[in-house]
């Protein structure tokens, strides 16, 4: 969802920006008295500034309540873990205390690394990045995720960790609720 919002928002704002530059370029062929232009420009700038502040404040309010960091937040969103999974990154593999999950599992991934810094990136079956945290030696970063769809998920390394970085992939299976079907 956030990827789509990010793409549309970028296209929208860059388009507005391009319009502003194109307009000024078109107007650059005319002449005007600069002090009058400045006076008018500064008035418009106040509204422009307030508009930007409003957009930024709106984005801040809408997003800071949904931070992926702490247990309180996870509990508030109902992601109280049913499974605690220890994840360790090591060049170039992921070691996990558990690899099979069911739809509905609320998982707490405790992520660390034993050699260098890696990036724990959880991808769903459509290869969309759905959650991530850094895997760093001497630290444990906890990320929460609830599996809502069955399928083969993958964990990709998202922090450059030397020449095998791109092969540092692990598949995990999320079965339908109630366990694997016999069909």
């Amino acid at each position: 969802m956030y990827q789509v919002i990010a793409m549309y928002a970028t296209v929208f704002f860059v388009f507005l920006l391009a319009l502003a530059f194109a307009f000024v370029y078109g107007e650059s062929k005319r002449s005007g008295e600069y002090s009058a232009i400045q006076e008018r420009g500064y008035k418009i700038r106040k509204f422009y500034f307030l508009g930007l502040i409003a957009i930024m404040a709106f984005a801040t309010i809408m997003t800071l309540g949904r931070l992926p960091y702490d247990r309180n937040q996870a509990e508030a969103e109902g992601i109280i873990e049913t499974k605690v999974v220890k994840v360790t990154g090591i060049q170039y593999a992921w070691e996990m205390s558990e690899e099979r999950f069911e739809v509905g599992d609320k998982v707490q991934f405790d992520v660390t690394a034993s050699d260098v810094t890696h990036g724990f990136g959880l991808y769903n079956e459509k290869m969309e990045l759905v959650a991530q945290t850094q895997a760093m030696p001497e630290y444990t970063n906890t990320v929460y995720y609830t599996f809502e769809e069955p399928g083969t998920y993958q964990i990709l390394c998202l922090e450059y960790c030397s020449t095998g970085h791109h092969v540092m992939v692990k598949e995990i299976v999320v079965e339908p609720e109630g366990g694997a079907s016999d069909e």
Binding site: A6, T63, L64, V130, A131
Partner: peptide, 12 residues
């Protein structure tokens, strides 16, 4: 730089 966006776009 929005944290919730960064959660699914960082290092992409």
């Amino acid at each position: 730089a929005t944290i919730v966006v960064n959660h699914v776009m960082h290092n992409t």
